[in-house]
């Protein structure tokens, strides 16, 4: 349902993406791994239409989103739910208002129904009765979960995660992994996850792709990635400082 074709993007002199190709199918979980700063977030932001490609295209169900007008683009982006790296909760709003943001604006549900949906979304991520708290009152892990509740409240077809397990302790990170798997099973959504955490990559992925120097250099099932004979991939998944990857 999503196809990225020969995507190029530079910021000034800095070439970040140099011909990324990938494909995300219905109901599939694709994990993109790569070093910090290699352009993973930039790739995601192209997929939701925040950045326009210098060259190449992003197709959502065959439609090139860079060619859409603002209003049409917003309709497409509403099919995505995105969990941001730092959660990106609106800090002037309560948890409840955060989660109901999209529902209130772009659906015809009544206030009562919205309340129910918010409750349900929060319950799905294991949070109960926190609708009236403000984001600054939450821990990092809770923020991520509220961010996820906000992303799924809308019933998206596709959920995008930007480093869901970064910045929280290993136990909470694993809980997030469980959530990712549960979301996929319960909501039957396609999932695209970006991470440099190999533990979660192996745990949740149907396929793993590695982004390196602006391209997807390897793509395959977790088994295939583990047994890859590409030295760059081997260095990354084993987390060694020695190897072909030098720039950091």
């Amino acid at each position: 349902m999503i196809r990225v074709i020969d995507l190029h993007k530079s910021f000034g002199q800095k070439k970040v993406l140099q011909g990324v190709n990938l494909r995300l199918k219905h109901g599939e979980t694709l994990v993109i791994i790569g070093q910090s700063g290699c352009g993973k977030s930039v790739l995601l932001k192209h997929i939701i239409g925040l950045f326009k490609p210098d060259k190449g295209s992003v197709l959502v169900d065959g439609v090139d989103i860079a060619k859409l007008k603002d209003d049409e683009l917003h309709k497409v982006t509403r099919r995505f739910g995105m969990l941001f790296q730092g959660s990106a909760l609106f800090d002037s709003m309560t948890v409840g208002q955060n989660v109901s943001f999209g529902l209130e604006r772009y659906t015809d549900f009544s206030q009562e129904e919205i309340k129910e949906l918010v409750k349900e979304s929060l319950a799905k991520v294991g949070l109960i009765g926190i609708e009236n708290l403000m984001p600054y009152e939450l821990s990092g892990g809770m923020k991520k979960r509220v961010g996820l509740a906000r992303a799924i409240a809308y019933r998206p077809d596709i959920i995008l995660y930007d480093e869901p397990s970064t910045g929280i302790d290993p136990i909470r990170a694993d809980a997030i992994n469980e959530l990712v798997i549960r979301m996929k099973e319960e909501l039957k959504v396609a999932t695209l996850i970006i991470t440099h955490d190999m533990v979660s990559a192996y745990k949740v992925a149907d396929r793993i792709g590695m982004l390196y120097e602006g391209q997807i250099i390897e793509m395959g099932s977790p088994e295939e990635i583990k047994n890859s004979d590409n030295q760059v991939v081997q260095q990354f998944i084993h987390g060694k400082a020695e190897g072909p990857i030098k720039n950091w």
């Binding site: 509403r78 990106a88 906000r150």
Partner: peptide, 21 residues
């Protein structure tokens, strides 16, 4: 200050991802 903070904490991107201009 308010919008700038929203920008650097990706809240503007989040707005966009929720389909809000």
């Amino acid at each position: 200050a308010e919008i700038g903070t929203m920008k650097i904490t990706e809240q503007i991107d989040a707005l966009f991802s929720l389909g809000a201009d």
